[in-house]
């Protein structure tokens, strides 16, 4: 069992949380044995914004979230907080978080996290490209006084 760098762990937890649940299940259909420390629990997180985008915080409204914590027989503990109400998603993400702290990490990173990241990036890029396609290209008309 290795102790992961917080930055790396932060990144894979985010990737797992933002993954489409169906896709994650496809990439990791079978879960190894594990104990539930906290059974998947659906709740709400209050989302905050900032006044004027940069100012004091205010409460915008809530979003649904599911959290789950597991322990592998070998000891590592995994946590997940994922958007939405998909209990299987939270459980799967927590198990992978735990496995990422074991020697299985390189294999999982390549087999699960890398494709999830590439797909998320492709979705983002496709949307950004569509947005770029609607960018206005102003040009100045020839005005009367110039003639």
């Amino acid at each position: 069992m290795t102790s992961p760098a917080p930055e790396a762990r932060k990144a894979w937890i985010a990737t797992l949380a933002k993954a489409p649940p169906g896709r994650l299940a496809e990439l990791m259909p079978e879960l190894p044995p594990h104990d539930l420390l906290r059974a998947p629990e659906v709740g709400a997180v209050m989302v905050r914004g900032r006044i004027g985008g940069t100012g004091a915080a205010f409460n915008l409204g809530e979003m649904t979230v599911t959290r789950c914590s597991v322990r592998l027989p070998s000891g590592p503990v995994g946590h997940a907080w994922v958007q939405g109400r998909d209990r299987a998603h939270a459980r799967r993400a927590a198990v992978i978080d735990a496995l990422m702290q074991t020697e299985a990490a390189p294999d999982l990173a390549a087999r699960i996290l890398a494709p999830l990241r590439a797909e998320a990036e492709a979705r983002r890029a496709a949307r950004a490209a569509k947005a770029a396609g609607t960018k206005v290209e102003f040009f100045t008309m020839v005005r009367g006084e110039d003639q």
């Binding site: 709740g43 997180v45 914004g49 985008g53 947005a131």
Partner: peptide
């Protein structure tokens, strides 16, 4: 009916992936 699990950090709208 939902338990309040947490409050988020304020969202950073300058980092928004903008559609418009």
């Amino acid at each position: 009916t939902l338990p309040r699990l947490a409050g988020s950090r304020p969202v950073d709208t300058a980092a928004m992936a903008v559609d418009r």
